[in-house]
Design a protein around this nucleic acid. Structure first.
Length: 741
DNA sequence: GACCTGCTGCGGTTTG
């Protein structure tokens, strides 16, 4: 038999294995495991010996699920409680993940007769009503379905969860700072208030950038008490290459470069499983088309497939299955759809086309490769930059795409990644939770709403004044979301009723209306309605070429048949990404330094040299504001997106025309504006600026349309802008000497 | 200057 030694570094006398319930020990043995992994053993001790909140942080396929559930299920078996209710609650961000995890848990629970209940939109209502009638076992649910439980069966929440011992939050890193994460934390607070006690929280996550902040997200009131369990080291060897390409402005020149990159991918990826992250859905379609064409031309079996959110579930399942099976070589050209979530097995290589938006996501993507013992992780980064001529723009000359890609890789190698931003108000989601909380109880007093959501829940930055303004906006007869009864009880108004009753209410994020694309009765996927399509038009979609046959406007359906040519459609633009200050700082280190990464190819190395030359010629290392030509200045702000946008908006309020780049602005001024340096000097002296003077668009999130302009400005200031940074940024730009003039 | 994620109850029909 195996040697099950005590694996706790503190020298626990009892081994982790011995702390597991008998049937669970039997299950572990039946798996043929030689020993528990370090995270698993640590988690067994932590969960068995205390009631502490815990974060288990380990790479994909590191055994986190077992680390949390083996001891939790053991507790349910060894210390049974009477009275019914779900024993363990699991929250997962994806339906596919819930299905996957339910299968793994069912395997563990088979011998112990503990029900495992997956619960999301695709689960039949009969299974759900059965589970509600006799609740026990492990409930695996999405945040949206839990939201629906609160709204539809609010009164039953205490009965369902009175005996729940723990809530396991999977993929914690993916919900840290998002609207969806705030919703989840609000629901967990409401759950605890509903059952009248704290429920232990266990977060599972890939490596997090900042464990302290993650603890604050897991248990806001008491982050110091959160136990952290991390894997040390064990990182696979990393093989890296960055290839640079130059293109002219003509379509033919761009296509030639696309062809070159496709040829390189084809040569190196064919015959194995790989992921190509192409950045945007349109670009996914283009590269999938080029790669498939190569297979056809060489009469080889097809192994390149497109994968993004607009493609049909059926097609996506097919691609995922092919990757997971490992039988036939498969390369998925994808967006972030394949960045996290379900296990698709190990891939040989990860390719990234264009600079990524965050180090965190680059790290997550790379984690898909090199997971097998002794296998290196491989990253192939492709960057396309412009051919320079006399008319070349600022960003082209500084090669900002290339420099950002290098900065991201360097930070990845240093082990850094973006921490979550914790300062936002999240007013859109606050509106959602106010309506949901009123619906849960059929009515609520204002002070209770404030206590539950803002004092005990996640909206702690919302002051009483702002909260009252939000209630007033919702109660405005024009809006009609809520109304006040004689005794001060807040109820849903007619509009509020309708909104909450519709199933589209449960999610806190918005999705645009789309056409369904159909060929021979089968749905290929969906396209945003802003594409203008008419019969006869050619299209590339799902990596293949089509011609439009019929457009049914009312049903939002487009019928297509195969064609021999096509162009990729436009997909709606999303939110611009927020590049972190640290990434920009790294970009400037690269521009000012002479370090040459060994992973650059010849073209990218010469382009980095061009960027450094131009930066030096501009003199921006010492003079952050330089005159370019025709009334245009270049400004090296050295700031990430938020601070850069703040300065851009401030200058815009004074009438300057401003263009934003990573770490830079260009500013056009005419005679009607004061000299730029004078304006910067005013900002630096702390003179208040009305950032919203030119009424920029502030409606970004699902429930923003119910808020007043003033509340929208508060929300924007808390997340997209940093008003306090203006003085500091501009002081750095003009230098101390200038202040005295 | 981008991507991703989610969804109830009820009425109708079919089947055992």
């Amino acid at each position: 038999m195996t040697n099950w030694s005590a694996s706790n570094s503190e020298g626990a006398m009892v081994s982790a294995f011995e702390k597991l319930a008998r049937p669970i020990q039997k299950w572990v043995r039946s798996k043929g495991w030689r020993e528990l992994r370090q995270v698993q053993a640590d988690a067994v001790h932590a969960i068995s010996d205390s009631e502490a909140d815990i974060i288990v942080s380990a790479s994909t396929a590191g055994g986190k699920t077992e680390a949390a559930f083996l001891p939790l299920i053991s507790k349910v078996i060894d210390e049974p409680w009477d009275g019914g209710g779900f024993d363990i609650l699991y929250l997962g961000p994806l339906k596919a993940l819930i299905t996957d995890q339910a299968m793994r848990l069912e395997d563990i629970c088979r011998e112990v007769e503990l029900p495992v209940i997956p619960w999301h939109g695709d689960i039949s209502s009969s299974i759900k009503s059965k589970a509600v009638k006799a609740p026990r076992g492990i409930l695996l649910i999405t945040p949206e379905s839990l939201e629906a439980l609160f709204i539809r069966r609010g009164m039953q929440i205490p009965r369902l969860f009175k005996n729940t011992r723990a809530v396991v939050i999977d993929e914690l890193h993916s919900v840290l700072d998002s609207e969806r994460g705030v919703q989840m934390r609000s629901l967990l607070t409401r759950l605890e208030i509903s059952v009248g006690r704290q429920i232990r929280r266990i977060g599972l996550s890939a490596t997090l950038g900042n464990m302290k902040l993650a603890s604050t997200y897991l248990r806001p009131g008491n982050p110091e008490q959160v136990k952290l369990i991390e894997t040390e080291g064990g990182e696979a060897e990393l093989l890296l290459q960055l290839r640079g390409y130059k293109t002219g402005e003509k379509d033919s020149e761009r296509q030639a470069v696309t062809e070159e990159i496709a040829a390189h991918l084809f040569k190196h990826l064919r015959g194995s499983d790989n992921l190509v992250f192409a950045g945007a859905r349109q670009s996914v379609e283009i590269y999938a088309d080029r790669l498939r064409q190569r297979c056809e031309n060489e009469r080889l079996p097809q192994e390149f497939y497109a994968h993004h959110a607009s493609l049909s579930r059926e097609h996506r399942d097919f691609v995922e299955k092919r990757l997971k099976d490992g039988q036939l070589p498969t390369t998925a050209v994808c967006t972030s759809t394949l960045e996290l979530g379900i296990d698709i097995g190990d891939v040989a290589c990860v390719a990234q086309i264009g600079a990524p938006f965050s180090v965190a996501s680059l790290r997550q993507r790379l984690g898909r490769s090199g997971r097998r013992e002794g296998q290196p992780a491989i990253l192939r980064q492709y960057i396309v930059e412009a051919q320079l001529d006399s008319r070349s723009g600022f960003a082209d000359k500084l090669r900002l795409g290339l420099v950002r890609a290098i900065a991201m890789i360097e930070l990845l190698l240093e082990g850094w990644c973006e921490p979550p931003n914790k300062a936002a108000l999240h007013l859109s989601t606050l509106v959602h939770q106010i309506l949901s909380l009123i619906a849960e109880r059929g009515g609520a007093k204002a002070n209770r709403l404030y206590r539950v959501l803002c004092q005990e829940g996640p909206f702690r930055l919302v002051s009483v004044e702002i909260f009252q303004d939000v209630l007033r906006a919702l109660g405005d007869p024009e809006t009609g979301l809520i109304e006040q009864a004689g005794d001060g009880l807040l109820l849903l108004g007619p509009t509020g009723e309708r909104l909450v009753e519709h199933y589209g209410f449960y999610a806190v994020f918005e999705t645009p209306e789309e056409f369904r694309l159909i060929h021979a009765g089968r749905e290929l996927g969906t396209l945003p309605v802003d594409n203008i399509l008419a019969p006869g038009m050619l299209l590339i979609f799902s990596g293949r070429r089509w011609v439009v046959e019929e457009v049914h406007d009312l049903e939002k359906v487009i019928l297509v048949v195969p064609a021999s040519a096509g162009t990729p459609p436009a997909f709606s633009g999303g939110d611009p990404g927020l590049i972190h200050d640290v990434v920009i700082k790294k970009m400037f280190d690269l521009l000012e330094g002479s370090y040459e990464p060994t992973y650059l190819d010849q073209t990218s190395r010469s382009m980095l040299a061009e960027a450094r030359n131009h930066f030096e010629r501009l003199g921006m290392a010492t003079t952050p504001v330089v005159y370019e030509q025709d009334g245009t200045y270049a400004v090296a702000t050295r700031c990430g997106t938020v601070k850069n946008a703040t300065l851009a908006l401030a200058l815009g309020a004074y009438g300057y025309r401003v263009t934003r780049y990573d770490g830079f602005l260009t500013v056009e001024s005419s005679d009607s504006q004061p000299p730029l340096l004078e304006t910067l000097n005013e900002f630096a002296s702390g003179k208040p600026v009305d950032l919203f003077r030119r009424s920029p668009n502030l409606v970004f999130d699902k429930f923003h349309r119910f808020l007043t302009p003033e509340l929208l400005r508060h929300d924007a200031r808390s997340k997209r802008l940093d008003t306090n940074s203006l003085e500091e940024t501009t002081l750095r730009l003009i230098g101390n000497s200038f202040v005295q003039t």
